[in-house]
Simulated assay, not measured.
Amino acid sequence: MKNFFLPVAALLMLFSCQNDTAETTSEASAVSQRGCATQEVLAAQMKADPSLALRMNKIEAFTEKAMLAGRLVNGKVEIPVVVNVLYRTAAENITDAQIQSQIDVLNEDFNATNSDFSSTPALFSGVAANVGITFVLETINRKSTTKTSWGTRDAMKKTKQGGLDPTSPTTSLNIWACTIGGGILGYAQFPGGSTATDGVVVDSKYFGLSGSGAYPYNLGRTATHEVGHWMNLRHIWGDATCGSDLVSDTPTHNTANYGVPAYPHYSTCSGTPVEMTMNYMDYTDDRGMYMFSNGQKSRMAAIFVAGGARAGFGV
């Protein structure tokens, strides 16, 4: 059984080992492996605001209590989405159709209607989840910029720094589509952070069904992965060798997986379990990830109940 609670000291130790990600001024020529800067961004936020660890610990305690008590919203959450497009080139000014394709992917992936959900191996079919949370596109904001890349210091979320401030962040999911740089496909803010920077950032090249040019990250799964973080999911390997993602029904992973690993892929961690490489919270290619687990569903649902970190979205 995995541990569901991390003391403050453990949280600080876990995230202090992550390097701060500097704002990137040039874009890598190609991205060969998925890069998510969520943990690095969290480390920087904790360094700037030590009280964040305390808030996240309270959220973790509430999450555990909500799951144990069965006080879960269970599919009664509809998420209004605000998409903020920051563009320098015509290609970065992604179309309304591409934006809607991302909303469609989120709805499919979080409701287990994605066509590849049926590929879930028999070993995991009993825990493969229909999360039952839906997304509705509310607003698209667009802004022309001279920036070639935005980095991971949240500048895109601040009008005073050339970006766009979030719209109604306590009741709307803000997603920024822009060029991040540094090989980073996206990043998210965990529950507990400042509302002034709350939301998800996805590089515009990997936003929605973005075409063959963004292969193998062209199926909209970067946003699925990052929204998972926004809903309090950790990377499935726990960001440590044989670490914990605080979910009981996901196998212990050695570390991140890339590409599309052949099934079964065995862990060398205790018990040598078959790794759930097709989980959205791994680092596999878009075509290689296609499921959440029931434990992850319970963890996500817990933040939307009364008293939860994102209760403003609940019923």
Rank of each mutant, 00 (worst) to 15 (best):
8 V>W: 09
14 L>Y: 02
15 F>E: 04
20 D>W: 14
22 A>Y: 13
23 E>P: 12
26 S>V: 13
27 E>K: 14
28 A>F: 13
33 Q>R: 13
33 Q>I: 13
34 R>E: 06
35 G>M: 08
42 L>N: 05
44 A>D: 12
47 K>Y: 04
47 K>I: 03
48 A>E: 15
49 D>C: 02
50 P>N: 10
51 S>G: 07
57 N>S: 15
63 T>H: 10
65 K>M: 14
66 A>N: 05
67 M>C: 13
68 L>H: 09
68 L>K: 15
70 G>H: 06
71 R>K: 15
72 L>C: 06
75 G>Q: 03
76 K>C: 11
79 I>F: 02
80 P>S: 03
81 V>I: 06
81 V>C: 01
86 L>C: 01
102 Q>M: 11
103 I>K: 04
104 D>G: 07
105 V>R: 04
106 L>C: 05
113 T>H: 08
114 N>W: 05
117 F>C: 09
130 N>R: 14
131 V>S: 04
133 I>N: 05
133 I>W: 01
134 T>Q: 07
135 F>A: 06
135 F>G: 00
136 V>T: 15
139 T>K: 15
142 R>P: 10
143 K>R: 14
146 T>Q: 13
148 T>P: 02
156 M>Y: 14
157 K>V: 12
158 K>V: 14
160 K>Q: 15
161 Q>F: 14
168 S>D: 15
169 P>R: 12
170 T>N: 15
170 T>S: 15
171 T>Y: 12
172 S>P: 08
173 L>G: 03
176 W>V: 07
177 A>H: 03
178 C>T: 11
179 T>M: 13
182 G>T: 04
183 G>F: 04
185 L>S: 06
188 A>M: 05
190 F>S: 03
190 F>P: 03
191 P>E: 02
191 P>V: 04
192 G>H: 06
201 V>T: 06
201 V>K: 00
202 V>N: 00
212 S>Y: 05
214 A>D: 00
215 Y>Q: 09
217 Y>T: 00
220 G>W: 00
221 R>F: 01
223 A>T: 02
229 H>E: 09
232 N>P: 03
234 R>F: 12
235 H>P: 04
238 G>F: 00
239 D>L: 07
249 D>T: 05
251 P>E: 06
252 T>N: 14
253 H>R: 08
255 T>H: 10
256 A>Y: 14
256 A>D: 12
257 N>G: 11
259 G>I: 00
259 G>Y: 07
259 G>H: 03
262 A>W: 06
263 Y>R: 06
267 S>M: 02
271 G>T: 05
272 T>K: 13
277 T>R: 02
277 T>E: 03
278 M>R: 09
278 M>D: 08
281 M>Y: 03
286 D>M: 01
288 G>A: 10
292 F>D: 02
293 S>L: 10
296 Q>H: 10
297 K>D: 09
300 M>C: 11
301 A>G: 11
303 I>L: 12
303 I>R: 07
304 F>L: 08
306 A>C: 12
307 G>N: 10
308 G>I: 04
311 A>R: 10
312 G>L: 04
314 G>I: 10
314 G>D: 09
